[in-house]
Design a binder for these strands. Structure first.
Lengths: 256, 256
DNA sequence: CGCTAATTTGATGTGATTCAAGTGACGTGG
DNA sequence: CCACGTCACTTGAATCACATCAAATTAGCG
């Protein structure tokens, strides 16, 4: 309900979806007024999606990019024996498949992990904006470099920390990334993602995911429902997740 | 011995080090003759390095990039309780810290994992070449996007496969990347990296690393010495590592 | 109110860790 | 050129974090 009315709002005032993208770019790179105007004029074809249907499939050669407007999407890959690793979670304002601009073949799948709204922009339109405003091209390059920095941090998380720390770490990351686009509500945020999906992001089983959430709750760090996460003790959570936000390369690094 | 004479060779014929970089860029992107000439003219300050001394440290703000000329380097991060995750291994021709061109602060450490030779290029020189030949700028962007694709694949490897498969997978990857710059010798390649370092790349203990190497040898897939890796059965190795080279985005994808 | 999917909980198995004690390879200096 | 010291690697035993299997509970939706 709340979601679909948001979407309607966005569609009636057609500039709003682009504003999220602008907000995101501003959080990592200076953007001039003229550039903002150019971004606002980018045509967005809006779509509503549900989990279970891929946005782009591995092996495809897309001719457009996708901007997350509402909800959460993920990048994933499968092993031949059925394992699924989620290697990125996107929040509104992100461009999950910006790499397709210069890498023809998709080497991963892109899918919603909550009901969500996305906007599509043709590659050529992005190309034009970059040609006209080279600094925007640099901003997008920088965006992809930050994506890579986040990959690196996830690898540290998965390779070196126990499940408890992994979860704490990701919650810290999401808190900061959502705050950067103004989508936190005090110390909590909307996050209607199933534990099975999260388990695939941490490389653990969904059973263990449930146990870890339980431990985090029992220690008074988090409060989790099916739709929201509330951080009860930011300092302890940051400590438990060994979290240092440097890798997010945000201009302003304020916590909750 | 062999190494230092190589270095002398490279230094006397000053174009050689740059040729490796060119070979690497050509393996992922078309490069014109004029662009090759520009790359050849890039000034390279050569240095010989040993493991144990970082090339760039986390938190620094470098003003130059590093090109690997001989040997192997790695990107790593540490957890507060002493764990180290290696999240990338670089082969000659790679530019490990190309991201520093647009991301001021280093969010990782860069270090040799074998004795190696690198060349340094000032950011401004790279910037100039990119301004003059925009297609080279795109090639470098593409380069960083492929780095990211490799991160994604490592995450799948670490998160979803058992140690045995992880090792098989990486050997396949190294084989193909080295072949792309002409550094394989039939079905084997020089790889003087300690098992402790590899263990940190796989997120396992060095003890287990030794056991896994033993299993791979016993099954007749690999032959490993302290300085070289020989692939005895490419098909079986690929199978064991569930290896699909799409993510390397190489122009020509021939196996050993 | 009842159905379905998500989550929780318990019991048991396993891949990998840790600790500890070897063995082997290699460079150095006598 | 051999004895020695160092560092890398190997091997065994005990332990642990997490997986798997199975069943019970809960939350949301029509």
């Amino acid at each position: 309900m709340a979601q679909s009315s948001d979407v309607n709002l966005l569609m009636t005032r057609s500039i709003s979806p682009n504003d999220l993208l602008i907000r995101r770019l501003q959080s990592i790179h200076p953007v001039s007024n003229e550039e903002i105007r150019a971004l606002r004029d980018l045509p967005l074809e809006i779509a509503s999606l549900e989990p279970g249907h891929d946005i782009v499939r591995m092996g495809e050669r897309p001719t457009q990019c996708c901007v997350v407007i509402e909800g959460f999407t993920c990048i994933y890959k499968l092993t031949s024996d059925g394992g699924r690793q989620i290697m990125a979670i996107h929040v509104p304002g992100d461009i999950p498949d910006i790499q397709s601009l210069h890498l023809g073949v998709m080497d991963f799948g892109l899918a919603p992990i909550s009901s969500c709204t996305v906007g599509y922009i043709p590659h050529e339109k992005i190309q034009q904006v970059c040609d006209t405003y080279p600094r925007l091209g640099v901003a997008l390059w920088r965006e992809t470099l930050i994506d890579a920095a986040i990959y690196r941090d996830w690898m540290l998380n998965i390779g070196q920390r126990e499940a408890f720390g992994r979860v704490a770490h990701l919650v810290c990351e999401l808190m900061m990334r959502l705050k950067a686009v103004g989508l936190t509500e005090g110390s909590s945020f909307k996050f209607p993602v199933t534990q099975a999906n999260l388990a695939d992001a941490f490389g653990i089983s969904s059973v263990h995911m449930s146990r870890v959430y339980g431990m985090l709750a029992k220690q008074g760090l988090l409060l989790v429902t099916r739709t929201h996460i509330t951080v009860l003790d930011w300092d302890e959570l940051q400590e438990a997740g060994d979290f240092d936000p440097t890798y997010l390369h945000l201009e302003r690094n304020a916590p909750a």
